[in-house]
């Protein structure tokens, strides 16, 4: 299973990379949406852990891109964002995301949900 972690916050990248590797995923990281596109095209990840607010291309655009392209149909998307208003969450889910976890999130919950998504 390949997971792509997209965030502009180095601590998040570091901690999630460590955690997902431990859980047995092949981990890729991107520091903004633009970098994410490249990796998605090359690696076809199974799971995206996506921040919303990033420089250049934001998380919503990445999600929309993935969910609208038939070749990435299998890819699951989990938003991890400090934007925790109802409208922000709804927007993410409307774009096809499978899960929206407001920051600060629980790493245990994230791992559990990720597993769940991967088994289906």
């Amino acid at each position: 299973m390949k997971v792509l972690i997209v965030d502009d916050e180095p601590n998040i990248l570091l901690s999630l990379e460590y955690l997902m590797k431990k859980e047995g995923y092949r981990v890729f990281i991107a520091r903004d949406g633009a970098e994410a596109f490249d990796i998605i095209r090359q690696e076809l990840p199974d799971l995206l852990l996506l921040d919303v607010m990033m420089p250049r291309v934001d998380g919503y655009e990445v999600c929309q891109f993935v969910k609208q392209s038939p070749e990435y149909q299998h890819c699951k998307v989990i938003f991890l964002s400090a934007k925790s208003k109802e409208a922000d969450i709804q927007k993410g889910l409307d774009l096809g995301a499978d899960l929206y976890l407001p920051k600060p999130f629980s790493t245990r919950e994230l791992v559990a949900k990720a597993h769940e998504l991967m088994q289906n």
Partner: peptide, 18 residues
């Protein structure tokens, strides 16, 4: 405030669990 808080939570949870 959420941004550093998120980092602190994630890092310390991992420290605690692993």
């Amino acid at each position: 405030i959420r941004t550093p808080l998120t980092s602190i939570r994630a890092l310390s949870e991992i420290l605690h669990d692993q």
